[in-house]
């Protein structure tokens, strides 16, 4: 179990709820603001859950995630350089910008983006209604039936 120093705890507390709008815009862009996806998703819940997950990560990963979030939003050198922050870009420009991160020839840029993508997308696709909409209903029912059984039969 990793013990946190007081300074680390303060940094956690300061950053854990910051960047929520960035996170939300990033998640929306990850699914291209597609109505067919977002209609099955309670976006605020996904954002809060993602934020909670990040805030419980070990300190190094937490800081790396937050730093990457800011790097993506403000397009800071040396990883990228854009005049307009990510949140102010129109959707098509955002998608193009994220693809630049994803397919970058610079390995570390790609890896940082992969980390952010993994966390955001896995929380988005944890929404039951979205999973059911892509045909995952049988397995969800299987689980639901089990959870309705009396404890001793589970």
């Amino acid at each position: 179990m990793t013990r946190m120093t007081l300074v680390q705890r303060l940094i956690y507390n300061f950053f854990s709820t910051r960047g929520r709008r960035m996170l939300k815009e990033l998640i929306i862009t990850m699914c291209a603001d597609d109505h067919a996806v977002l209609t099955h998703v309670r976006l605020q819940r996904v954002v809060l859950r993602t934020e909670k997950y990040i805030s419980e990560l070990p300190f190094f990963y937490f800081m790396t995630f937050k730093a990457t979030l800011y790097l993506i939003n403000y397009a800071l050198p040396p990883l990228s350089w854009k005049l307009k922050p990510f949140m102010w870009m129109p959707l098509e420009r955002r998608l193009q910008y994220l693809e630049e991160w994803q397919s970058s020839s610079f390995y570390y840029k790609r890896t940082l983006f992969k980390m952010v993508q993994c966390v955001c997308v896995s929380h988005l696709y944890s929404e039951r209604r979205l999973l059911i909409s892509i045909g995952f209903e049988k397995s969800m029912q299987h689980r639901q039936q089990r959870s309705e059984l009396p404890r001793e039969q589970q």
Partner: peptide, 23 residues
């Protein structure tokens, strides 16, 4: 499961949506 697959595929945006619909 699709939730894990979604985070491993190298796509975002429309290509990700399309991949997941085809999953």
């Amino acid at each position: 499961p699709p939730d894990i697959a979604a985070m491993t595929v190298p796509f975002v945006g429309r290509r990700l949506n399309e991949f997941m619909r085809e999953y």
